[in-house]
Write a protein that binds this DNA or RNA. Structure first.
Length: 181
DNA sequence: CCGGCGATGGTCT
DNA sequence: GACCATCGCCGGC
């Protein structure tokens, strides 16, 4: 059990997104056992040029976290009812993040489903995930022999022009917990 | 079985 | 006031 250190996230976003596959998302809520689930699907959002990245709309109170140091949670609220979990990547002032889209649990096969399962909301926004201190962290894991990374376009960003078809969604091929398209 | 759509509120114009 | 990194339900086939 090794917690991924901050420097793990201080790298190219698309590399981080792929390297997170097979790692373990961990949650410790007061009065409960630690919950640990394997990450099977991610997406990369890369800087101000990427029209699908919230930071492309500018530096605002909402997107401020992405402009900060790597290894912190970017949790935002969307569609009036869903929270989505991202981890900030790259260097300070380069706004980028990886969206966690699915984990190995029957109610974890979608970005909003896994935040509901693990009670992740904006109270965790901007907190570091390279320590257990705040009850949310990620531990190192590996792909199993025979497992392969599948690359496909990101979901729900038809508005993103030239960036909408970039194959920046990564999943473990044939894994049953990857979200439905 | 599958596609369309409503729910529901924060964020930015 | 429009848009939105979603989900599950409902109706039609």
């Amino acid at each position: 059990m090794t917690i991924l250190p901050q420097r793990f996230y201080q790298r190219n976003t698309l590399l981080v997104a792929q390297d997170l596959l097979g790692c373990f998302l961990c949650r410790h809520r007061p009065g409960r056992r630690v919950e640990t689930y394997r990450i099977v699907e991610t997406e990369g959002y890369c800087g101000t040029d990427d029209l699908a990245c919230h930071a492309s709309k500018g530096r605002t109170p909402r997107t401020e976290v992405m402009f900060g140091p790597a290894g912190h949670a970017y949790v935002y609220f969307v569609y009036g009812m869903h929270h989505l979990l991202n981890i900030v990547t790259e260097g300070k002032d380069y706004p980028a993040a990886v969206l966690i889209r699915a984990i190995e649990h029957e109610r974890g096969n979608g970005p909003a489903k896994l935040t509901k399962l693990l009670a992740i909301d904006r109270s965790l926004n901007a907190l570091p995930v390279f320590t257990k201190k705040h009850g949310l962290w990620i531990e190192r894991g590996e792909l199993q022999p025979g497992e392969q990374i599948k690359k496909s376009p990101r979901v729900g960003i038809d508005y993103a022009g030239a960036y909408k078809d970039k194959p920046w969604r990564f999943s473990i091929a044939k894994n049953e917990f990857v979200s439905k398209k």
